[in-house]
Nucleic acid binder design. Structure first.
Length: 430
RNA sequence: GUGAUUGUAGCUCAGUUGGUUAGAGCGCCAGGUUGUGGCCCUGGAGGUCGGGGGUUCGAGUCCCCUCAUUCACCCCA
């Protein structure tokens, strides 16, 4: 074991894996553009109150999972962001972007931090792709972000996902339901587990998605939130379902889906992946019309959005074998030399090739010719260019096609001419 | 925060009831081919056996503590 290791729950991404990230990120950028979303970056930390107010102080995230610290004794507490929505909303309100246009569509791919015990599909530093549609409060907006998310999965070839959706109604609906739940559970108080007892007081809705089998039994007989929705909330929800059906997006209504963040209202959804372990949520989101007011804004700023766990997405793709065609590109040519006196000349040639726009490698470690050739082969170079005394005197170099083993003798200008041919790489290494 | 699991070479792992100098495969390096890669053959480098303490004539092996890993709970992406 090396003396220093990465911090618990944090990991390194090496070049082989990086290729996958680049690929997925590329697809994300183009699909976001397709739907008219623009990228935003916000600070990696925020004042702690932002998350306490935005996410909700009764949530697990705020209660026990935040990395918080105080830069100076008198100063305000700062927190490494555990999610993105609060920060994006803060940025939008701070700049008052709605005054420039009534609707804003923003997306991000960002690093998040949560102080949890790491396990399969869960790290302390992780990243999410997310989109926020600000300024419109409608079923159409929710449907649009869900559609965007599902199209991303489809474009990547991810399959067998399960989209579950529910409506949490508006604030009044939830208040009425909340007291109904409390009176339902009250007689069972002794049978509740510790966390459910606590939730009964603070946030009874959360008892619904408890995984404890004993709790689930009790929950089965509990009143349904759906029955407490106002007529308009039901209509809105059905409109969302209509849009989804119309776009051939299959879903499953889950009346017990409540999600852990306080800011959701009306539609809330979650996508799970069968390829993951116990932590199988690959994405989730909903509507959060009241968040802006919660953050001190004078009026509501209607909004809808989602977040997709990048690591979980990549993990699912890996499991589903979607990366097999992704081969890292090697250099086009390796400049190889035998005599050490010619090293400088070889590097000079490598420089000239690179100036000509040809990706080139050369040995910097004074290794044997055999080692250099082995290296060229390992990095899947298409060609080797030999630099020796003979070449130096004649000005003609030996260019070897490493796939066909054919070798020709050419002037450097001719070599550059050949290697510049753009389609060459595909022909050589298909 | 709770529970369980696993720590031996760069990687994947062997290592008998405690017994001399801790092994294999792959990878890496070199040679076979003194100017030519992949395949093959030969050789080489590389290990505080996670760390600390204890038991013992003797510990990779047994005991305690500790650190780390992984999985699960909780909850979430």
């Amino acid at each position: 074991m090396p003396h220093y290791q990465a911090v618990k729950g944090a990991r390194d991404i090496f070049p082989e894996e990086m290729a996958r990230w680049k690929y997925v990120e590329g697809v994300i950028h183009s699909i976001a553009a397709l739907y008219g979303f623009s990228e935003i970056r916000t600070p990696i930390f925020e004042y702690t109150e932002l998350f306490q107010r935005g996410i909700g102080s009764t949530t697990d995230i705020v209660g026990k999972e935040m990395f918080s610290f105080q830069p100076d004794p008198q100063g305000r507490s700062i927190t490494l962001r555990p999610e993105m929505t609060a920060g994006v909303m803060r940025a939008a309100l701070q700049k008052n972007i709605l005054s420039s246009a009534p609707v804003h569509k923003l997306y991000y791919i960002s690093e998040l931090f949560r102080k949890e015990r790491p396990q399969a599909g869960r790290q302390r530093q992780f990243s999410q792709f997310g989109a926020e549609l600000l300024g419109v409060s409608s079923s159409a907006a929710v449907a649009e972000v869900i559609t965007l998310m599902m199209q991303l999965f489809e474009s990547l070839g991810v399959h067998s996902l399960c989209l579950r959706i529910n409506s949490l109604g508006d604030t009044e609906d939830r208040l009425r339901y909340r007291s109904a739940l409390q009176s339902y559970f009250a007689p069972y108080h002794d049978q509740l587990d510790d966390s459910s007892k606590e939730r009964l007081e603070k946030n009874p809705l959360r008892i619904l998605d408890s995984k404890n089998p004993a709790m689930q039994e009790l929950v089965a007989g509990a009143p349904r939130l759906y029955d407490y929705l106002s007529a308009s909330a039901v209509a809105e929800f059905e409109k969302v379902l209509f849009y989804l059906s119309e776009r051939s997006i299959s879903y499953q209504i889950d009346y017990r889906l409540v999600r852990g963040l306080d800011y959701y209202s009306h539609a809330a959804f979650e996508v799970t992946s069968p390829a993951l372990g116990a932590q199988d949520a690959i994405g989730g989101g909903g509507r959060y019309d009241g968040l802006a007011r919660e953050l001190g804004n004078a009026s509501d700023l209607p909004a809808a959005g989602f977040a997709v766990g990048m690591e979980r997405l990549l993990m699912t793709m890996e499991k589903q074998g979607l990366f097999t065609t992704l081969n890292p590109q090697g250099p086009l040519v390796c400049v190889v030399t035998q005599q050490q006196e010619l090293e400088d000349h070889a590097m000079q040639i490598a420089w000239r090739l690179r100036k000509a726009g040809i990706s080139t490698e050369t040995d910097l470690a004074s290794r044997s010719m055999k080692a250099q050739m082995r290296e060229a082969n390992r990095m899947r170079a298409a060609y080797a260019l030999f630099v020796g005394a003979e070449e130096l005197s004649t000005g003609l170099y030996s260019l070897k096609n490493l796939l066909t083993s054919e070798q020709t003798t050419l002037s450097l200008d001719a070599v550059i001419e050949i290697l510049r041919e753009p389609l060459l790489r595909e022909q050589v290494r298909s």
